[in-house]
Design a protein around this nucleic acid. Structure first.
Length: 270
DNA sequence: TAGAAATGTTTAG
DNA sequence: TAAACCTTTCTAT
């Protein structure tokens, strides 16, 4: 379930668990065996996230880059770890500065590789501002958006425009601001972009804190649980054919550039 | 037991 | 635009 908030939450956790100490890195599955050997036994100096990318910095200067893709997950548990269940691409065991060693298992990532500094620079250079990074400059995204004839829905998913936004946050933030996903970037006013950005910063930080996507305004929700059966409670995401929670209009659905897109035609008119 | 679906990205055509 | 890829989980048969 990885949008940017998931990766930032993992970075915080891994930093707390492992930074400042030696980490034993292995690949029970074998597919990351060569990479694991390059960093095994080194000290992890820092874990950080850029958009949906997770970086583990080691004292040798090497960096493990992880991208979870659609299905990747990390699980954590106190050491000693039990025998791996399923396909564990990378297993980390370390105690950081704490006394109690911890383990983390990575399954199903799109990317798990060792990078050198120039490759890390190239990676971060091609990402747009990340709402979860304090140093992010929303104007970089604004200048792309206001010159673009592409739809705002496509722009929000383009990681070189904004880093970390995924399908759920895209659908929900556009609903919250009454903006049609079909609107062209250049038809989004400067004020509207400022509001979208501020909302993304707030929503995604909530996501990091809660460990889940929470987008419903309390006044629209009356204490309903933010999650039901593993699925976030949303205004429009994965609610095609159901009534809008605000105006009861049927939620619309289409596939745009291979991704499911949901919106309320009445609350988000063209 | 088989099949579909999933909050993503890259590559091929 | 379509297909490929990584893996788990839930649903249907």
């Amino acid at each position: 379930m990885p949008e940017g908030h998931t990766l930032h939450r993992l970075a915080i956790s891994h930093h707390r668990r492992f930074a400042g100490g030696v980490v034993r890195v292995s690949s029970p599955q074998g597919r990351f065996a060569d990479g694991a050997a390059l960093v095994d036994g080194r000290t992890l100096t820092r874990a950080e996230a850029w958009g949906k990318h997770l970086l583990h910095h080691y004292d040798s200067g090497l960096v493990v880059h992880v991208h979870l893709g659609l299905y990747g997950t990390f699980t954590e548990s106190p050491a000693p770890l039990t025998e791996p269940v399923g396909q564990v691409r990378m297993r980390m065991i370390g105690g950081g500065r704490a006394a109690r060693p911890y383990g983390a298992d990575l399954r199903g990532p799109t990317a798990c590789e060792v990078l050198h500094a120039p490759e890390v620079d190239a990676l971060t250079a091609r990402l747009g501002p990340d709402p979860l990074r304090p140093d992010a400059d929303p104007e970089r995204a604004a200048s792309r958006i206001r010159r673009s004839s592409r739809s705002i829905a496509a722009l929000l998913m383009d990681q070189s425009v904004v880093a970390g936004v995924g399908n759920v946050y895209r659908a929900e933030v556009l609903f919250r601001h009454g903006i049609s996903p079909r609107r062209q970037g250049r038809a989004v006013s400067a004020g509207q972009w400022d509001e979208l950005w501020a909302d993304l910063v707030a929503l995604m930080n909530t996501g990091v804190r809660e460990g889940a996507i929470v987008v419903m305004r309390p006044e629209d929700d009356h204490g309903a649980p933010s999650y039901a059966s593993g699925k976030p409670r949303t205004y429009v995401y994965r609610r095609a054919g159901e009534p809008c929670r605000i105006c009861a209009t049927t939620i619309a659905h289409t596939v745009l550039q291979g991704r499911n897109l949901f919106w309320c035609p009445s609350c988000q008119p063209d």
